[in-house]
Design a protein around this nucleic acid. Structure first.
Length: 613
RNA sequence: GGGCCCGUAGCUCAGCCAGGAUAGAGCGUCGGCCUGCGGAGCCGGAGGCCCCGGGUUCAAAUCCCGGCGGGCCCGCCA
């Protein structure tokens, strides 16, 4: 398939041969130049080789260029720049081949990078509350990563882990069965549990030590599977089902739900404990402050002196199961049908669903930065136990609320730039509320602009989803995000709706013509047309780069650049009213090729495609 | 005390991993562009000790060291 990636590889190989033929050895880069005046692809090979050859790079660059033999010389123009760089420019024959292949295959088709067995865990929100915008960042990044991996041809499974034996669950039980909160409510159940019950219980626990004792008793029963666990089950499941409704609206889906209690009750931890002892990864302390505990790396207690396991021990167990270090003993049941028509499975005790878990070659876990140190520990342990496999920890910066947004929620933010969210104290912005506000804002904008789409509510929702997903995925992972609701409601500029609007423009052109288009790049000679074709050619190059650097934000960056290139072309050149038939047909081919590639990228980002706004 | 992340235009962020050729977007601001395929767009102006100081290099926003500022983690909590 014709692509930028193909050409970069071809040039890299050619340069290696060329250097060999003039008797110089050197590492070099083949990269995108900073400025179009330096061509489309560029190399610093002459600079890198200069030292070994003891010759000035300027002189060397001419020799390298003349020794260079490319597979398809007519598709790349080579230029030696006086500075010493060798620059390459893609030519019309290359672009003609690119366009015809895009039209023929309706896009780039498969990307051959080798199929790996990949498992991604994301979302994993405690089952006692609704998702807030911080959780949404986790889920959206995880989902884009999933879509990216799948697009690259990997065999991907998405997991969502539910901590159903933790303090938060115990607190819900306190709320419902000690403090007397009714189980039925008019509110969405996850909101009710998080906004009302949980917050009130936390307040009460602060001043009532009796409840604290009761809480630890409940916790123990949850772990052992006693009566408290039995009555918690239904409540937890109800919350999880509401949480799923929220993420499904964003186009996010999973393959399997994992429950902490199942890992305990199936006896996985027992096996893990034995494995850790056998491999000598943990030691029993007979003196000092950790006397009576099993300790990892001399500092981290995994098993308390009373024999119970700490949270990190459960994390290690889960990670080991993902990678196949522990044999899969689970039974599986169907949990739900998802909006994308796939089935969501769950582990269970009496299942007969035809699901089978296959251990991963590489796993990914999405966590916020605060949990990074512990997950690194988990990584160290499981990678030591399974050579050749990788456990990748993707940590992202916290999402906090801007001072003004916090104030709107009734939080005293007195002149602060931002405020951290906290489930315990009820300071957070819910995903459902955001989606609702954004849908209303989109609808208002549509009305203002006289939109006449068939289903305005569905379109407004699609705009809201695009807006949220793009906003949460466009920053680099490490960056903290300060969430501001007023800022989020804007639909112009560097946003998801900008991408949707660009797509609509292309679709409208194609809708209004019955001509097929002729992929003849010789007729697309303007700066804007060349720039658009160049950007188009970079799709696979960009997706691969995003994968290699674990950076979903790069997909967003590419989508944006591709859209800009199209809009610049669109403003400058007419397609359907072009009188020269050859040019018109070539432009139609270009627009069609663009629409295929753009659909492809928007699908990776999970941005809903709309035909009109 | 130990460790992790961030610091680039008034604001939000790319570029740093793989050093290179005038440091790029969006928002805001100032000024242009629709009898035309959808103006949620496009073009242009103003706006930058790339946090500071050293070092490595022919070449540093980018690599190394030391500071400063902001955020976070370091429990027989979860």
């Amino acid at each position: 398939m014709a692509s930028y990636l193909e050409k970069v590889n071809e040039i890299r190989e050619g340069l290696s041969e060329a250097l060999k033929s003039i008797g110089v050895q050197a590492e070099f880069d083949v990269a995108e130049p900073p400025n179009p005046q330096f061509g489309d692809i560029s190399t610093n090979a002459a600079f890198q080789a200069a030292k070994a050859a003891r010759r000035p790079p300027q002189e060397l660059s001419r020799d390298i260029a003349s020794a260079l033999k490319l597979r398809d010389p007519e598709e790349v123009a080579v230029a030696v720049h006086p500075s010493g760089f060798i620059n390459f420019t893609l030519t019309p024959p290359f672009y003609t081949r690119l366009l015809s292949e895009l039209l023929e295959k309706r896009g780039f088709g498969e990307i051959g990078v080798g199929k790996r067995r990949v498992v991604i865990e994301h979302t994993s929100v405690n089952p006692n509350k609704a998702l807030h915008v911080g959780h949404a960042r986790n889920a959206v990044i995880g989902d884009v990563l999933y879509r990216l991996m799948r697009r690259l041809g990997h065999d991907v499974t998405v997991l969502n882990y539910i901590d159903d034996t933790g303090v938060q669950v115990a607190d819900m039980l306190l709320g419902f069965f000690r403090m007397g909160f009714p189980l039925s409510t008019d509110m969405k159940f996850d909101h009710y549990c998080g906004d009302v019950v949980y917050v009130k219980v936390e307040e009460e626990v602060e001043k009532n030590p009796e409840l604290l004792q009761e809480r630890s008793r409940i916790l123990k029963e949850l772990e052992e599977g006693g009566a408290e666990y039995e009555r918690a089950k239904g409540i937890i499941e109800a919350v999880v089902r509401e949480q799923l409704k929220s993420v499904w609206q964003l186009g996010i889906r999973y393959d399997l739900l994992n429950w902490e209690s199942h890992f305990l009750h199936y006896g996985y931890w027992k096996n893990m404990f034995e494995t850790l002892k056998e491999k000598g990864l943990i030691k029993y302390e007979t003196e000092g402050k950790n006397k009576g505990c099993w300790v990892l790396k001399g500092t981290k207690v995994l098993v308390r002196s009373d024999g119970t396991a700490v949270y990190t021990a459960k994390d290690i167990t889960y990670a080991a199961w993902k990678l196949g270090i522990l044999d899969d003993m689970f039974k599986y049941c169907e949990f739900a049908k998802q909006p994308d028509s796939t089935t969501l499975y769950t582990t269970c005790f009496d299942g007969k669903a035809g699901y089978r878990y296959t251990p991963a070659d590489e796993t990914y876990i999405l966590i916020d930065q605060r949990q990074e140190p512990l997950q690194r520990l988990v990584k160290e342990v499981v990678e030591a136990l399974s050579p050749g496999k990788s456990y990748n920890v993707l940590a992202y910066g916290l999402v906090s609320l801007s001072g003004s947004t916090a104030s709107k929620l009734g939080v005293n933010a007195e002149g602060k730039k931002y405020v951290h969210m906290s489930g315990r104290s009820g300071v957070y912005y819910n995903l459902d509320d955001l989606l609702l506000e954004l849908t209303k804002a989109a609808r208002r904008t549509m009305d203002e602009r006289g939109s006449r789409v068939k289903d305005p509510d569905a379109t407004a929702k699609a705009i809201a989803v695009a807006s949220i997903r793009y906003a949460l995925v466009r920053q680099d992972l490490e960056k903290q995000i300060v969430f501001d609701i007023d800022e989020s409601l804007k639909l112009e500029g560097d946003t998801g709706p900008y991408l949707q609007y660009t797509y609509v423009r292309a679709r409208k052109i194609l809708e209004r013509t019955s001509e097929e288009g002729v992929p003849d790049a010789a007729r697309l000679a303007s700066e804007e047309e060349r720039a658009l074709m160049l950007e188009l050619s970079k799709l696979t190059y960009s997706l691969l780069d995003a994968y290699r650097s674990f950076s979903p934000s790069r997909v967003a960056g590419y989508a944006r650049r591709l859209a800009v290139a199209f809009n610049v072309f669109y403003e400058k050149h007419r397609v359907l009213d072009e009188q020269d038939a050859n040019v018109r047909l070539a432009r139609i081919a270009l627009v069609r090729a663009f629409s295929y590639a753009f659909e492809d990228v928007l699908n990776v980002l999970g941005i809903p495609l709309v035909e009109e706004l």
